[in-house]
Write a protein that binds this DNA or RNA. Structure first.
Lengths: 230, 230
DNA sequence: ACCTGAACACCGTTCAAGT
DNA sequence: ACCTGAACACCGTTCAAGT
C-alpha cells in the first residue's frame, strides 16, 4: 500500500490536460481561433501533433475543455450572497450572472466563438446554469420557466458577445464593417434603417447588451405571476 | 449601340454567381456545412476549384451570398399588410418577423450556422432589418430603441436556431447529447438543474422559442412608454 | 505508458498557361 | 474572358515503431 499515485513508474509525461488547455488558451489570445491548430499547439508544447491525441480524442474535445476553463470562477462570483445589506432582488442577481458570463467570454480572444461551438457539461458550465435556475426558482418561477429563461438569457448573452467580438476584432475574416453597412443602407430605400443607422453602427456594446438584458428581465417580471407556483 | 450585353462575344461562362450559390445550398442540405468545401462544390459544378475564385473572392464571400439567398422572401411575407381585418398589433408583427427568420434558417441544414458566420448587406437581409425597425418605429419606439430591439430579437432568434439545429442533427460533431447532460447533472450536486432537467432536455424547440419571444415582446411593452417620442 | 515519425486524405487559395 | 493544371502551404487524425 505505498500509494503508487496515478502515474506508474517511468518517465514523467510531458503533457497533461490542464497544462495543454492553458497553453491552448494562451495561443488563442495571441493568434485567434482560426490560427489555433493542433500542429501549432503541439509546437508550442514542444511535442509532435499526434501526441495531443493521447489526451484529447478530437480537437472538439480540446475546444470543449477550453470553453469550460473560460468559465472558471463565474458561478462563484454570483453566489457571493447579499453581503451586509439586504438580499438583492432576483432580477439583479440574474442580470449580474449574465454580465459575468459576458465578461468571461470577452476576457479571451474569440471567447464567444469557442463557447458557442461547444457544449461543456463541466462543473463551471453546469455551475453557471445551476446559479441561474436557482435564482429563478427561488424567486418563485416554475421548473419549466426557470429552464427556458436560462436558455433565453444564455442564448442572448452568447449571441451578443459573438457579434461584439466579431465587430471589435479587425482581422477576423468576418468583420461587421460599419462602412459597408452604411453604403448598403444608403444605396437602397431603407428609411427606417437609415434612421436607426447611428445606433446600428455604434460601438456602445455594453449599452446594447444592457438594453437586451433589461428587455429579458422586464419580460420575466411580466410573466412572473403566471409562472409562480401556488 | 447594339447593346452588347454584359458578356462579350465568346464562349458562354459555365459558372455564374446565382447558379453557384444554388448548387452550394443544395450541397449544404445534402452533406452539411463541414462537408461544403470549395473543391466539392467545384466538382458538383463540373469545374476546377480555382475557377470558383473568378466569381467569389473567398469562401467567406460565397457563404455570405448563401446566407443572403436563404432569406429570400422573408421580408415580403411580413409586409403583407393587415388583410381584411384590423391592422395587427406591432407585437404580433414583430413576433411574426422573428418566426419567419427562424423558419428560413431551419429550412436549410446548418442554416443558422451559415447565417451566424456572415454579415450580409444584401437586400433580403437589409429588408428584414428594415421591416423590424419599421414595425417598431411606427409603433412609437425611438430610433435607438428600434435599432437595439432589432439586434436583440435577431440575436436571440439566430442563437436559438443555432442551438436547435445543433441538437437536432445527429451527426453534427458537436451534438447537444441530452444523455451526457443528464449524467453530468446527476453526478454533481445541482438541485435546481435537476428540477429543470426535463425542460432542458426537451425537444419542444418551438415552445422554447415562443417563450423567449414572449419575454422580449413583454419587455418591449414594459419599456414602451420610456421609448415613445413625445 | 507516452511520444516520434511519417503517412493519409484532405483543405483554401494562387497563378501561369491554355482556349 | 474564363477555365485548367498544378502547385503552395497548410489541415485533423491515425498508427507502427521507438524509448
Amino acid at each position: 500500500m505505498s500509494s503508487p499515485s496515478t502515474r506508474a513508474r517511468g518517465r514523467p509525461a510531458r503533457l497533461d490536460r490542464p497544462g495543454t488547455v492553458e497553453t491552448a488558451l494562451r495561443l488563442l489570445d495571441e493568434s485567434g481561433l482560426d490560427a489555433l491548430t493542433m500542429r501549432r499547439l503541439a509546437d508550442a508544447l514542444g511535442v509532435q501533433a499526434g501526441a495531443l491525441y493521447r489526451h484529447f480524442a478530437t480537437k472538439q474535445e480540446l475546444l470543449t475543455a477550453m470553453a469550460e476553463r473560460m468559465l472558471a470562477g463565474v458561478p462563484a462570483a454570483a453566489g457571493d450572497g447579499p453581503g451586509e445589506g439586504a438580499a438583492r432582488d432576483w432580477s439583479e442577481q440574474l442580470a449580474d450572472l449574465a454580465r459575468d458570463l459576458r465578461t468571461a467570454l470577452l476576457a479571451r480572444r474569440d471567447g464567444a466563438r469557442v463557447f458557442a461551438g461547444t457544449h461543456s457539461t463541466g462543473v463551471n458550465t453546469l455551475g453557471f446554469a445551476e446559479a441561474v435556475t436557482g435564482v429563478l426558482r427561488e424567486a418563485g418561477f416554475g421548473d419549466e420557466g426557470a429552464a427556458r429563461a436560462l436558455m433565453t438569457v444564455a442564448g442572448f448573452t452568447v449571441g451578443h458577445t459573438l457579434e461584439e467580438q466579431a465587430a471589435v476584432q479587425p482581422g477576423n475574416e468576418d468583420s461587421a464593417d460599419p462602412e459597408r453597412l452604411r453604403r448598403a443602407v444608403a444605396s437602397g430605400s431603407f428609411p427606417h434603417l437609415t434612421a436607426s443607422l447611428p445606433t446600428l453602427t455604434s460601438t456602445d456594446f455594453t449599452g446594447h447588451f444592457e438594453f437586451g438584458l433589461r428587455l429579458l428581465v422586464q419580460g420575466l417580471r411580466a410573466v412572473e405571476q403566471e409562472q409562480e407556483q401556488p
